[in-house]
Amino acid sequence: MISLTIMPLIPPTALRPLAESDQALSQIQLIATDMDGTLTIDEKFTPQLFQALQKLQQAQIAVIVITGRSAGWVNAVNHYFPVAGAICENGGLFYQGDTTEFLVDIPDITQHRQNLAAMFQQLQQRFPQIQEASDNRFRLTDWTFDVAGLSQADLAVMDQQCAAAGWGFTYSTVQCHIKPHEQSKANGLQYVLQQHFSAISLAQVMTIGDSPNDVSLFNPVIFPNSTGVQNVSRYTDQLAHLPRFITPSPEGKGFCELVDRLICSK
């Protein structure tokens, strides 16, 4: 008997080469981009990245960083980067200038953190090897632990266990996140766009990412223009939505390719 491997079908409107994006890019007024694996190269920021961000600023194209990283880390990104704002903890909080805005309803932060810790302890009973992430102490809305060493089956079980307890769960190339069920990059970004960038339509927004916690940014019903940097291709069989376009190169190099093409399209 011959065993056939059935690969998931890729919609014809997804993962198009960046060379086919010029018409879409010509109308973009705001970029909402993931950070780790999308802006970084080998986990570092590069001079080329800052040059790309400066090009966008000079072209009056707003940039919002939207990442799973902690409130403590992202406050610095908002302050030091040439960006219009930053969303942290996968849609938990928004930083703009000197203001901070919660994007999820958490009446009691102390109790919320205790509830997150209890959920993490439940996961540890089944997966005793997992350890709290080093940046977890700087978080407000979610709880994180390192994704390294966990299989796809492990992650699926964790997702199911969190859902059964009323929590959301997601992961990136770096970390796993226990979070409020309604908390997502898409929900947080939509609120920020409505409240702070109401003159910009969703058709004028380009969302960019590289991993499973970016999947809501790839939903074409909400965001018709999305791009994955090349390294997103390793997750295509795990994503409910695929980006419309994909860059030739991975990580920050791919982001810079997108910026150069965007600037040329104007």
Rank of each mutant, 00 (worst) to 15 (best):
M1R: 04
S3C: 03
S3N: 08
I6R: 04
I6Q: 07
I6L: 14
P11C: 13
P12D: 14
P17I: 15
L18M: 09
L25K: 00
S26I: 15
Q29H: 12
L30G: 00
I31Q: 04
A32C: 15
M35N: 12
T38Y: 13
L39M: 15
L39E: 08
K44V: 15
Q48N: 10
Q51K: 11
A52T: 08
A52N: 05
L53K: 05
Q54H: 12
Q54V: 14
K55G: 02
T67L: 12
N75G: 04
A76Q: 10
V77L: 15
V77G: 02
Y80C: 07
P82R: 12
V83D: 08
A86H: 02
A86F: 03
I87A: 07
L93V: 14
E101C: 09
L103V: 11
D105T: 11
I109P: 03
H112W: 04
A117E: 10
M119D: 00
Q122D: 05
F127V: 12
Q129K: 10
R139M: 06
T141R: 03
T141F: 09
D146L: 09
A148Y: 09
L150V: 04
S151R: 06
Q152E: 07
Q152P: 00
A156E: 13
M158T: 03
Q161A: 10
F169K: 03
F169D: 03
T170L: 09
V174L: 08
C176P: 00
Q183E: 09
L189D: 02
L189R: 01
V192C: 02
I200G: 00
L202W: 07
Q204H: 10
M206N: 01
T207M: 13
D210P: 01
S211H: 09
F218I: 08
V221H: 14
I222F: 06
Q230F: 14
R234W: 11
R234K: 14
Y235P: 00
R244C: 07
I246Y: 05
G252N: 02
G252D: 03
K253S: 09
G254L: 04
L258R: 00
D260A: 11
C264Q: 13
S265K: 07
